[in-house]
Structures are given as C-alpha cells and as structure tokens.
Amino acid sequence: MGVLCVEILTERDDSIRKIVLSGRLDTESSQELCSRVCNLMTDQPMLVSLKKCNYISSAGVRALLVIAREAKEKGIKLRFSDAQPMVYDVLDMIGFLPLIEYRDTAAEAEAELL
C-alpha cells in the first residue's frame, strides 16, 4: 500500500517554498502527490526534497515528471533534491535526473532557486 506524506516546511511568504515528500511514491500515492504538490505551487520557487521517500515506482517517476512539467508551464523554478539511494539510483538508471532538475543537496538546489 503506497503511503505518502507531503510535509510543508515553510510558509507562503518565504523566498522558497520547501516541501518534503515522505513514504512510497507508487501507483497508489502518485495521483494524490501530483495534485497536492501542484496545488501548493504559487509564484515562489519550489524545492521538493525526496529525503524521506524510501521507494519509487514507475508511477512515482511519472508523478515527479508531471510536477516538473506543471512547474515549467506555470513559470515556477523548481528543483528536486536529497533522494535516498534507492530513489536516486532509479532516477539515475533511467536517465530522468536531468528531466526533473535534480540536485544532490538542498543547499545546491536552494542556491539556484534564490
């Protein structure tokens, strides 16, 4: 069963909207993930940390792509960062890291967003 939690770390008036995804990104959680994260998009840059995600499936990968595309269409700068090894490896193996503007550390991503 895919259980996903979207944790919001900052308030709307901060310079970067920081979000932490936790749990499993799979077919059961991906649809909710997309709608929740997309609903959180304002005109602020957004940093989505994957540090608490411990699993990603094909549907989860698609969810990240949908979020990245939605941000692009809205003109919002968005970076993903801090993936756990399994999630990082999957995204790396299938060559998706460049597509979602992934950065290894939150600091690196933040520096680009500011």
Binding site: S57, S58, V61, V90, M93, I94, G95, F96
Partner: peptide
Amino acid sequence: SGKYSLQMEE
C-alpha cells in the same frame, strides 16, 4: 533498472 521493472523507461 530491470529489478524495478523500469526497463521500458531506461
């Protein structure tokens, strides 16, 4: 990524 069934994407 075959062990994750992501061979199609790769």
